[in-house]
Design a protein around this nucleic acid. Structure first.
Lengths: 257, 257
DNA sequence: TATATTATATCATATATATGAATTTTTATT
DNA sequence: AATAAAAATTCATATATATGATATAATATA
């Protein structure tokens, strides 16, 4: 059923601006999966009729969702729901570049292991699942220029990824977040990372072929979906002799909505 | 002389949209310091007359500069040029939080040393100054909750900071970037950081009171002003046992203009 | 069939205007 | 002088409309 058959209630007397109400209604369509990743959303004229407001108000609402990263407008073509794919992955969630370079490249990825485990207390707490529930623990190696500098440990709760197997995981043709999106209907909307410098333990030093106790970067990433529901805990161990973690920013943060 | 007396030439036949031409003209006023940090810019009606376009076009241009962080609009009050101060510093350029916390706090800062030196080759190259020219090298300690976890080394070219002395530097009542802005007319617009994990050398281990060779975070920050002119090289050495470097992001980057 | 042209759909830019909300300034009142 | 009320200023929201730019689809032509 298309969203053009849905009924939206916009309150013209609300103190919340119309454009924000519409933005929120459209956001809820994304959240409730009534608009799926990659999908073409109704054109502006249709949205005008659907919400019974002027086109400027529609453009404001859609424009905000575009700035937030949920929609992508293409002139002459239409407006689409953002989806995770190889190209978006590269620029969003992979923050590394070779020494001396400012350009992010596509990383090479190699599978290490796939296990089913019981969540630790802190994992369960962070994931919002009962203590001791089942999680998948997946190790990957990542790198640049055919060398490997990064070990990734992924923890995801089994209940949100029913039926996930090593074969499905390694058989994916796209990014991990694309797998979540297309096979498990989970759309990662935001990530936050915390970085520390630590010493490599035996496992990491073997995997990355570096001396034990070598200084490495440890990155704890929390991947969330709509409404800040935590989906994935990812820990990256990075040998940074040849690569840098990169973080750029302008003078101020974008406006919160 | 107020910018209301300046003459702007807007080309209505250009393929560049009017709003972008106006955004660029206003940006150039910032760049050329015809609009200073903290200053109230002309109201929308005046801008309409100045550029001879409709108010919607003005709002689009100003709105973009607001999103970029250069202007701040206040309903009922006016639109102001962004300025570096204590509050903005906290949320823009200080990326640390205590373990377990997601909240950035205001750091405590302690001066260590101020020296005049000859730039190394790479420093000169990065700063765009002749090899061997004079730079100021300044060390600070930073931390949270009265403890110190960070050593900052700042390198800035003498020619861009004429007359800077240790007394002026330590006598500042606000942030370092506020000092650049108000005393030397240099406005930092963007920063990029590259992070590595390294082992603490003797100097850092003494300054931070940690064992030699302890794993620490090394952050190379390049601070730039308008048109990507590099102003400051800052290297931070961070003992991350008690604090995290924090980096959050949404699904996509903001649109480039 | 292959290519060029035309039409259509869709978002982008721009104008004009009216009303509302938030803040400061001015005026009136006690 | 102190307080309250009114006015002025400024940005925010919303409508209505016209034209342009871009990509795709349909059609005409060689």
């Amino acid at each position: 059923m298309s969203i053009t058959h849905l009924k939206f209630d916009i309150d013209r007397d609300s103190k919340t601006p119309l454009w924000l109400q519409i933005r929120n209604e459209l956001f809820n369509c994304l959240y409730r999966d009534e608009l799926r990743p990659g999908q073409l959303i109704p054109n502006e004229k249709t949205l005008v009729e659907l919400f019974n407001v002027s086109i400027g108000t529609i453009r404001k609402a859609v424009g905000v969702l575009e700035k937030e990263g949920f929609l992508i407008r293409k002139q002459g073509l239409g407006t689409f729901v953002f989806q995770h794919d190889n190209s978006s992955f590269l620029f969003e969630y992979f923050h590394f570049a070779l020494n001396g370079s400012d350009e992010k490249q596509s990383p090479n990825v190699e599978f290490i292991s796939f296990e089913t485990k019981k969540a630790t207390k802190s994992q369960a707490a962070e994931l919002g699942v009962p203590a001791g529930s089942t999680v998948f623990q997946i190790y990957n190696k990542l790198g640049l220029n055919k060398k490997f500098y990064i070990v990734d440990k992924i923890i995801i709760p089994q209940d949100k990824f029913p039926g996930l197997t090593q074969e499905i995981f390694t058989g994916r043709v796209n990014t991990v977040y694309n797998l979540y999106q297309n096979k498990f209907n989970i759309f990662i909307t935001n990530c936050s990372e915390k970085l520390k410098a630590i010493s490599a333990n035996e496992k990491i030093s073997k995997l990355l072929n570096i001396p034990i106790n070598a200084p490495i970067l440890k990155i704890n990433r929390v991947g969330q979906t709509y409404n800040n529901v935590t989906i994935e805990l990812r820990t990256s161990y990075v040998h940074t002799s040849d690569i840098d973690y990169i973080h750029s920013q302008n003078s101020t943060f974008g406006e919160a909505i």
